[in-house]
Write a protein that binds this DNA or RNA. Structure first.
Length: 290
RNA sequence: GGAUCCGUAGCCAAGAGGCUAAGGCAUCGGACUGCAACUCCGCGAGCGCCGGUUCGACUCCGGCCGGGUCCU
C-alpha cells in the first residue's frame, strides 16, 4: 500500500531538503504543493528545487504553467490529484511538499470547486454595496467589508453557478490516508535564514532573472519579483528592494503559520536542526517508519 | 566658541495649555474554497531629562543631555 507523507512548514525552513531525503528513504516520488513553483522560469526567486537537489527523485507539479497564465487552485487540485491517484494505483510512495496551505488542503481534503461559466466584475459598486449584496445572499458570511476581492469572488461565483461559497463541512474531511509532517524552528532563526536566503538569491542572479520575466502577467505577484521590478522601474533603490523582499517573505512565513496552526489539526511538528540537518532527517524518518 | 532647528511607540510622522496624543510601516495575533508568495481584520505610547510659570503642560519659560545645519 502506498505511503503518503505530507511535509508543510514556512518558507525557508528546509522543506525541500527534507522532502528529497524522505523520498529517497521511501523510494517515493514528490508532488509539489507550492503555488509559486508551479510556474516555469521563476527559478531563483522561488527557491525552486534544482535538478541537483532533486537527486534523481521524480518531481511533479513543478514548472507546469507559464507565467503568462494565472494558474488556479482548481487546476492544481485536478492535475495534482490525477498524479497522486495514478501513483497510488501503481502502489508507489508519495511525498507531498509545499508551502501553500490552500493547495495542500485542496489536494488532500474534500474541497469542491464547481465549474464557473464566466467571471463577473463589479467596478461600479462600492465595498459597502458589495457587502450588502453578499449579506442578502448569505447572511452568515464572514467576509469583511474591506475584503473586496473576496466579496467579488463570492458574487461572481454565485452569479455563475448559483452556488454559495460558505463554510463547507467537507473541507476538513481527508480523502487520503497520509501523515502530516510540519517542519519548524524559532521565529528568530527562521528570519535570519530568510535574510540569508534573499542575499544569496541576489548573488545567484535574481535581478537578471526578473529582467527577463518582468512583463509576464504573473511575475508581479511573486515575492522576490515584485520588489525587484520596483527597483528596475527606479521606484526604490536596490537596498530598499532587498529589504522589501526580506520583509515580505517574513510576513508570508507568518501567514503560513497562521494557516497551519488553524487549518490543520494533525500536524506532527519537528524542529529543524540547522547545525546538523541529518539529525532532523533522522528524526522524521524514524517517526515515519514507526 | 556663537547662531539656529529638532528630540512624540521598534522605525517614519501629525498635533496640541485642559474630553480617550492623528496616521503610516514593522512586530505580534487572527480570517481565508478559484490570482493564496493573494486579499483582508485586530492590537501598542503619554510626548529626551530636571526645574519653573499655571487651577492645569506633552504643548509656554529656563537649564542640562542628545542630534542636525550654519558661522568664526
Amino acid at each position: 500500500m502506498s505511503k503518503i507523507i505530507v511535509i508543510v512548514g514556512p518558507t525557508a525552513v528546509g522543506k525541500t531538503a527534507l522532502s528529497v531525503e524522505v523520498a529517497k528513504h521511501l523510494n517515493a516520488s514528490i508532488i509539489n504543493a507550492d503555488a509559486a513553483a508551479i510556474y516555469k522560469d521563476a527559478t531563483i526567486g522561488t527557491a525552486k528545487v534544482t535538478k541537483e537537489e532533486m537527486n534523481d527523485v521524480p518531481h511533479y507539479m513543478i514548472d507546469v504553467s507559464s507565467l503568462d497564465n494565472i494558474y488556479t487552485v482548481k487546476e492544481y487540485q485536478e492535475e495534482a490529484r490525477s498524479i497522486l491517484d495514478r501513483l497510488i494505483s501503481e502502489n508507489k510512495n508519495v511525498v507531498i511538499v509545499g508551502g501553500s496551505g490552500l493547495y495542500t488542503k485542496a489536494l488532500l481534503y474534500d474541497y469542491k470547486f464547481n465549474d464557473e461559466e464566466e467571471s463577473y466584475t463589479y467596478d461600479n459598486l462600492t465595498n459597502e454595496e458589495l457587502k450588502e449584496k453578499v449579506d442578502s445572499i448569505y447572511k452568515d458570511n464572514n467576509i469583511h467589508v474591506n475584503n473586496r476581492k473576496r466579496l467579488e469572488r463570492f458574487l461572481s461565483h454565485y452569479e455563475s453557478t448559483g452556488e454559495i461559497i460558505r463554510n463547507f463541512e467537507e473541507k476538513d474531511k481527508p480523502l487520503y490516508d497520509f501523515t502530516l509532517i510540519g517542519l519548524t524552528t524559532t521565529r528568530d532563526k527562521l528570519y535570519e535564514k530568510i535574510d540569508k536566503r534573499v542575499d544569496s538569491m541576489i548573488e545567484k542572479g535574481l535581478i537578471e532573472e526578473v529582467k527577463l520575466l518582468k512583463d509576464k502577467k504573473k511575475t508581479k505577484d511573486l515575492i522576490g519579483y515584485k520588489e525587484i521590478i520596483e527597483y528596475l522601474d527606479n521606484k526604490v533603490s536596490l537596498e530598499e528592494a532587498i529589504e522589501n523582499i526580506k520583509r515580505n517573505t517574513k510576513k508570508f512565513a507568518k501567514r503560513q503559520y497562521t494557516w497551519y496552526n488553524n487549518q490543520f489539526d494533525n500536524i506532527n511538528w519537528f524542529n529543524t536542526d540547522y547545525d546538523n540537518f541529518n539529525n532532523t532527517i533522522n528524526e522524521v524518518i524514524n517517526f515515519i517508519d514507526k
